[in-house]
Amino acid sequence: MIGNAGDMNVVVCVKQIPDPANPGSLDANNNLDRSSKLIIDDSDMYGVEMALQLVHAAGSGEVSLVSMAPNGETAGLRTALAMGAEKAVLVSDDTLKGSDALGTAKVLAAAIKRIEGADLILAATESSDGYTGTTPVQVAEILGLPSVTFAKHIEVDGSTVKVQRQTEAGYDEVTCPLPALVTVTAGVVEPRYPSFKGIMAAKGKPLDQVTVADLGIDAAQVGGDGAGQKITNVTAAEARKAGEVVVDEGDAFQKIVAFLDQLKVI
């Protein structure tokens, strides 16, 4: 599936999520309420930036995006296109509502196949709303590709990707032949802001909107019915006892010292 020799084609998985600045809520089916405007998950900005830099370093090739949203949302994809990605595939379908990580992976894998010639697939280590952290590896397994998760540094050397992979103790240097899937930690690169020119150009870039049926996926495999898991109960967590809040008038540190004394940590 490698494209023209010398080309570096990167596909980035992008999730569009409710703005994390607003308090989240559950809908009547206990799914995360996604009815508000969706934006690009901050975690995915790193993958998009990394992809743009890798293509730039290779000298030729392009960055493509894949995303899945129940309501035809494109705002987040337009942000990534404005950063410099060339094209996007959006899988949007009512039947996708309530999909779990594995269902999502099946959809994303099929969307990635639609973009031919991918050398490298990038994703965030996890999304900021669902944060299961399993979808990218499930995508890799479905596509029969090797994967390296938790990359904090990525370089491509010919047909090999070199990754510094975060570990409990430090990091591992890992090499992997392309094509491969790599998940990036936040901070792997500093994402650029879309320029005005980029924002204008993004409006004219190809955004291929497809349905589950277009991808040849059985609708029973996705959505709430395909999820194979169900929510049985939702309760408010036991709230922490309200504590004391003090406005510092120059002596608040004494309050802290007294608190530390009481805990016997000093």
């Binding site: 779990d100 990580a101 594995l102 992976a105 944060y131 299961t132 952290g133 399993t134 979808t135 990218p136 590896v137 499930q138 995508v139 890799a140 397994e141 479905i142 994967s147 998760t149 938790f150 992979r165 975060q166 570990t167 409990e168 999820a227 194979g228 898991q229």
Partner: peptide, 24 residues
């Protein structure tokens, strides 16, 4: 465990068996 390697194992196995994972 919801660890670096634990997540890799869960993701690979889930797709291999076509079984979901309850995470976190």
């Amino acid at each position: 465990g919801q660890s670096y390697d634990g997540r890799d194992v869960a993701g690979r196995l889930s797709a291999k068996l076509d079984k979901p994972v309850l995470t976190n």
